[in-house]
């Protein structure tokens, strides 16, 4: 997967320049959600982006991990009050809080991941997870010998259903007869961090004949990947590139470049290039994709790679349209 920079993507959005302080007293801030910055997946991708910004620019950032819904607004307001130039909220759950605080601090820039907040000082970054999931769904169906593939989701919410829908579309694109098993881990936030249950669901799907499982379940995925190792089957990672976790059984990972989005939000704010509006990042924008590196090179045949890459180009050109989950 080529690392595509998102900075050129401002064109996608309605560009509205927002004031920014000079670099000397530049203070960015990030508010992680309940999963915590070390969830090995979504929040951690954001953390990686913030860390990379710190490494490259030498500017420290402020951070907070919320433990209850009320703390979201409290933390975001506190950051803004303390003079942060940009506050990035991680996760759709922070949208109402960002909306409230952004109205109170019109001179501060805000960014929100996975949700849309329509205000002149907020950048809303949403990802087309279904497009990335389509590509790994293809990989799953291409690698499957049984014609059965599995999906393990975290908490049963529309966002995760979108992963599942795109994955199933991708698998069916390759093999219309493919059977796709789907399980959600649970209905509480504990579903994001329950490797034991993840392993159990994976074993059950393997038992029913699946030989590739895609986990979109945060920390729960770790259990799914381990079950794949134990059963000699294949697994697909999510959000961050998780191929390195188990080389040989990690078929690929669906990349959701939250890290790049966070890094760019910080960078743009620092360089007074911050733009508000919606950034909708799909395959075409390099916001989502599939991971191919030395850890899974041996699992992806040249024919598979060619086929997936062709589909990627077709999604970019609009020849393939991935529908995803449309909601109730």
């Amino acid at each position: 997967m080529k690392r595509l920079m998102l900075s050129g993507l401002a064109a996608v959005s309605l560009a509205v320049a927002v004031s920014s302080a000079n670099a000397a007293d530049f203070s960015p801030a990030i508010v992680f959600d309940m999963g915590g910055k070390f969830d090995k997946s979504f929040n951690q991708a954001a953390f990686d982006g913030a860390e990379r910004f710190k490494m490259e620019s030498g500017v420290a950032y402020r951070e907070f991990e919320v433990t209850s819904p009320t703390q979201r607004e409290q933390a975001i307001r506190r950051m803004a009050k303390d003079g942060a130039n940009i506050v990035v909220g991680i996760g759709f759950a922070q949208a109402p809080a960002i909306e409230k605080v952004a109205k109170e601090f019109p001179d501060t820039s805000f960014a929100i991941i996975d949700a849309v907040v329509d205000l002149p000082n907020v950048r809303s970054i949403v990802f087309k997870e279904h497009e990335g999931s389509f590509l790994v769904g293809m990989a799953a169906a291409l690698a499957s010998k049984t014609g059965k593939v599995g999906f393990v989701g975290g908490m049963d919410i529309p966002l995760i259903r979108n992963f599942a829908a795109g994955y199933a579309e991708g698998a069916k694109y390759v093999n219309p007869d493919v059977e796709v098993f789907q399980n959600m881990t649970g209905t509480t936030p504990a579903a994001w961090n329950d490797p034991g249950k993840g392993a159990e669901l994976a074993r059950s799907q393997f038992g029913r004949g699946a030989d590739v499982i895609y986990a979109a379940a945060g920390g729960t995925g770790v259990g799914v990947y381990q079950a794949a190792v134990d059963g000699g089957k294949l697994a697909i990672g999510v959000d961050s590139n998780q191929n390195y976790l188990h080389p040989g059984t990690m078929l690929t990972s669906m990349l959701k470049r939250v890290d790049v989005a966070v890094e760019n939000a910080f960078k743009d704010a620092k360089g007074s290039m911050f733009t508000a509006g919606i950034q909708s990042l799909g395959v075409a924008e390099g916001g989502v994709g599939w991971a191919l590196d030395e850890h899974n090179r041996s699992l992806i045949t040249p024919a598979m790679e060619a086929r997936i890459e062709q589909a990627r180009k077709d999604i970019v050109s609009g020849k393939i349209k991935v529908n995803g989950y449309k909601g109730s």
Binding site: D114, A115, D156, I157, P158, T187
Partner: peptide, 20 residues
């Protein structure tokens, strides 16, 4: 938790939005 997640995902969700 299961009941309210269901209600928020399927029934009470604000139309046209991803967040439950």
């Amino acid at each position: 938790a299961a009941m309210i997640t269901y209600l928020l995902v399927e029934v009470l969700i604000q139309p046209g939005q991803q967040a439950p």
